[in-house]
Simulated scan of single mutants.
Amino acid sequence: MEKGQVYEILGTEGISGTFGEVWLDGEYVAEIEGCQLKVDFEKQTVARPRRMMKAHKTVGAEGKGSVTMTKVKSRMINLIGQRMQDQKTLAFELISKLDDPDSIGAERIKAKDVQFDDLTLADWKNGEVGKIEAPFTFDGFDLIDVIK
Rank of each mutant, 00 (worst) to 15 (best):
D100E: 01
K64T: 07
A111G: 11
D123G: 09
M1D: 05
G17P: 05
F116K: 01
R108V: 06
E107G: 00
K125C: 02
E33Y: 06
V67N: 04
E8M: 06
G130P: 09
G4T: 05
L143Q: 10
K43N: 08
F19A: 00
Q36S: 15
D86R: 12
M1I: 05
T45G: 08
D99S: 10
G11Y: 12
G14L: 14
T89N: 11
E133V: 13
F136Y: 15
N78G: 14
V72E: 07
M69F: 07
A106K: 14
L37T: 01
G105D: 12
K43V: 09
D86M: 12
L24M: 13
T120A: 12
L10H: 09
D113H: 12
S96C: 10
M84K: 11
G60T: 06
A47V: 11
G140I: 03
V59W: 09
T12S: 13
I80K: 04
A55E: 14
E13H: 13
M53W: 08
T58H: 05
E133R: 10
T137E: 04
K112L: 14
S96Q: 15
W124F: 06
G17K: 05
L121C: 10
T68Q: 06
V129T: 11
G20A: 15
G130I: 07
V67H: 03
